[in-house]
Amino acid sequence: MLRASTTGFDCGTRGSRIEAAHGFGSFVKAPLDNSGALWAVGLIYAIRIEDDPLARELVMATGVDNSALLDQRENRMVPVEIGVINIGCLIDGKPYYSLPPRPPMSLTEVELCSDAEILRFTGRLEFFRLVLNTREVPSDELLGAALQLASEKRASAVERTQFLVECGRRLASLLSHDLTRLAHVLELIRP
């Protein structure tokens, strides 16, 4: 955890620790205290890789030296930054669809949500409004990616379709005033 507020947080990690699971729209959680009972739940909306003058020079070299590449990714203090918006919290494992009461503290370890936690959290769709109303992030694409990911956690094709259809219905009621936007989001979650 690098920076945090109740609406979201930025965390950093080494480039080598970034995996497929840390993609755009992934569900993550961060503890809000030491009890292990209270967690902020969020969605990854941005992954930023910062540069510095040395990295820029290495890019300009004719060939990339493999040891220097490893050095850049593993040793140098240039973290990959991950931006997260909060969409709720977990209290004793039970999901709540409002912003967490306080932000996680700096240097807190951020974890990916387990499949079971994603299923439980997306059992209700009340976090849609928090995502759709978030400015300065591509909220439609973010919600689309998160819902596609959540549908993949469902056991069967029927359940997956059922979940996405349910999501579409909820979106229709939330975005009834903006049909263009609604059509776009529905396209993003088409089964």
Partner: peptide, 18 residues
Amino acid sequence: CAIQGRKRYPYALTRADE
């Protein structure tokens, strides 16, 4: 010196300085 492209200086020395 070739590792750093336009800046022709031994990479290992650049990193030791850092």
